[in-house]
Design a protein around this nucleic acid. Structure first.
Length: 570
RNA sequence: GGCGCGGUAGCUCAGCUGGUUAGAGCGCUCGACUCAUAAUCGAGAGGUCGGGAGUUCAAGUCUCCCCCACGCCA
């Protein structure tokens, strides 16, 4: 039995994510986790919310709530929606957890001990009215270049000129609008990533099976310009993990917190601790410490391409620098972007379909199937309502749903709701079994290697094979001359439904459950071969004709949704 | 401006280290069937692989130049 540690990039706390976010990490991660469990492997699948940083503070302020309260509420909402999409996390944690506080401080202490942290004094704008330092982009003012009055401290959006906050004319706080600003000196910690450049390079070179997208991004950051830069890992904020050196105070760093990008990936580890605490103290270190049983774990991360640098460089630098035997990622599966109707999905502009809205319209399986079978694997891909409608109607309703319908209903009318006895497999059945064996093997290969689209393609072909068989065998004609053979044919059809349920479950868990329930299958076993799988339903066992598994999306619905989601989010 | 990823049938996309008539699904046309969610099955039409030059016995697949779209960065 293999052991799989699987993590999805952790979604930021300040709102509900859109379908592009979903298909870029959580959904494919769930597909893989469900598949590995179905194969009988031991899986720990973790995800969490990423809760620290200025955007969370501002979102909380906008909602008129203390940031801790806001984050707790949003975490609950995101967890609820994840459940709605059937994301099967073993634990959905929080980067603000006590476990992550302790672990982040621990890592910082280890890095300091290894002389991989240096202190840097820099100048930063302080807002007296807000009582806080302001990140550059939260300072607004008039652009000295073009006169635009909403230029930000890092850049003018109007003329795109790169700015320093002190360049702005009449600078003001974007948080409160106050002009009572001053420049103060402040001290920050930098992680000396540059010192780890060779180690990181060697580590990445050892990953020959990573997607081109992943390694090319990592290499670029590693070698571009002056090479890998040291990175500030602290901020002057209230909301975050207080800077401490392990268990000890860090003189001169009082009142500061770690930068969100330092503590967020550490939450992957801390989350296992949260999982353990939530499950009666299960041993989590056997998943994360190679000196405590994790040496046989295969660790796979899923994320969008924008997260790749942090996962290939910053986080590994933290782990390597600690000098401790933490499990490092084995395979890193990254995704491109899903576009919405010719443009980008955008959280800030409310463009596209958001996870809560999607579930209001249709059940999870519809989205899971379409998003996974069209996921942006090798290049950006496109969501349009026409493509979505076509894909769902054809694959789910016409090919799979209708297959289940025609087999069960034909059986009910000719033999009753019982798996019919009699007849033996002939050439046509053997041919089908041979085809399904080949496809089953290929499907497993594709799923093992996380080739999501190709897996979906293969699964679809497996569904189609059932319709081809039925069309050729024509039990509705056979039964007139040879009822025994017709019984065998329809029994095979029923077995195919069970076969489909098992293979399809990682993609469409709810529909798979309905199929199994209809056939009175309690616990599905992953088929070792098609021959046995298609001979597994005991003749004489009763079943129930299920409701249609999938309704078609009508043109009216499609147009309706097209209009409804054309503008920004209400 | 620099860098990155792409530009393959009407649409969405496959095509590893160059090798017979360039593939899939959808859509479209025609035919078959009638058990089923007017579903299914079969057949067919559709591409000078963004443009140009080069390397090679042989290039969608390598090299160079150009054009276009998108993304990131300064």
């Amino acid at each position: 039995m293999q052991r799989h540690l699987i993590t999805s990039a952790i979604p930021y706390i300040n709102g509900i994510k859109h379908l592009g976010n979903l298909v870029g990490s959580q959904l494919p991660a769930d597909l893989y986790a469900r598949y590995q469990r179905a194969r009988g492997n031991e899986v720990l699948f973790l995800c969490a919310t990423d809760e620290h940083g200025t955007p969370a503070e501002l979102a909380a302020a906008k909602a008129g709530k203390p940031v801790a309260e806001y984050c707790a509420e949003m975490h609950k909402i995101q967890a609820e929606i994840a459940k709605g999409f059937r994301l099967s996390f073993d634990h959905f944690g929080r980067s603000s957890s006590p476990q992550n506080h302790a672990l982040t401080q621990h890592f910082a202490g280890r890095l300091a001990d290894a002389d991989l942290i240096r202190e840097v004094t820099e100048k930063q704008v302080y807002s007296n009215a807000d009582g806080r330092f302001l990140p550059d982009r939260y300072i607004e003012g008039t652009c000295p270049n073009c006169g635009y009055d909403k230029a930000r401290g890092d850049q003018c959006e109007n003329c795109t000129k790169q700015l320093d906050p002190t360049d702005l004319i009449e600078p003001r706080s974007a948080v409160s609008g106050s002009t009572d600003l001053e420049v103060r000196e402040t001290k920050h910690l930098y992680l000396r990533q540059s010192a780890l450049k060779d180690d990181l390079n060697a580590w990445i070179d050892s990953k020959t099976d990573w997607p081109l997208l992943t390694t090319s991004i990592a290499k670029k950051w590693l070698h571009d310009g002056d090479g890998l830069q040291d990175r500030g890992i602290t901020r002057d904020l209230d909301w975050g993990i207080p800077v401490r050196r392990g268990d000890a105070d860090w003189p001169g760093m009082e009142g500061k917190v770690f930068y969100v990008w330092f503590d967020a990936p550490i939450e992957y580890i801390a989350c296992a601790g949260e999982w353990s605490d939530a499950h009666g103290g299960a041993d989590w270190e056997r998943w994360w410490r190679t000196d405590k049983g994790a040496d046989d774990v295969r660790y796979t991360q899923f994320m969008g391409k924008d997260n790749v640098p942090f996962h290939t460089l910053s986080f590994p630098a933290t782990i390597l620098g600690s000098g401790e035997p933490w499990k490092m990622v084995d395979h890193l599966k990254s995704f491109n972007y899903l576009n919405y109707d010719g443009g980008q999905f955008s959280t800030s502009q409310g463009r596209g379909v958001f996870m809560d809205q999607a579930l209001e319209i249709l059940p999870a399986d519809y989205w899971r199937w379409w998003l996974l079978s069209n996921c942006p694997e090798t290049s950006d891909s496109e969501f349009t309502w026409e493509l979505f409608q076509q894909g769902v109607n054809k694959d789910l309703a016409d090919v799979l749903g209708n297959f289940v319908s025609r087999v069960t209903k034909f059986c009910r009318s000719k033999f009753g709701e019982i798996v019919p006895k009699g007849g033996v497999y002939g050439d046509r059945e053997e041919t089908l079994i041979a085809e399904l064996d080949a496809r089953l093997t290929r499907y497993a290969q594709m799923m093992d290697s996380m080739e999501v689209r190709k897996s979906a393609q293969e699964l679809r072909a497996i569904w189609v094979a059932g319709n081809e068989y039925l069309q050729a065998a024509a039990p509705w004609a056979t039964i007139k001359e040879d009822p025994e053979t017709a019984a065998m044919q329809i029994r095979l059809g029923l077995n195919l439904i069970s076969f489909y349920a098992t293979l399809s479950a990682p993609f469409i868990p709810d529909a798979a459950q309905k199929m199994n329930t209809a056939l009175q299958i309690e616990k599905a076993q992953w088929p070792s071969n098609a021959s046995d799988a298609l001979d597994s339903l005991p003749a004489g066992q009763s079943f129930a004709v299920p409701e249609n598994l999938f309704a078609k999306i009508s043109d009216e619905d499609r147009k309706d949704w097209q209009d409804r989601f054309a503008g920004g989010r209400a």
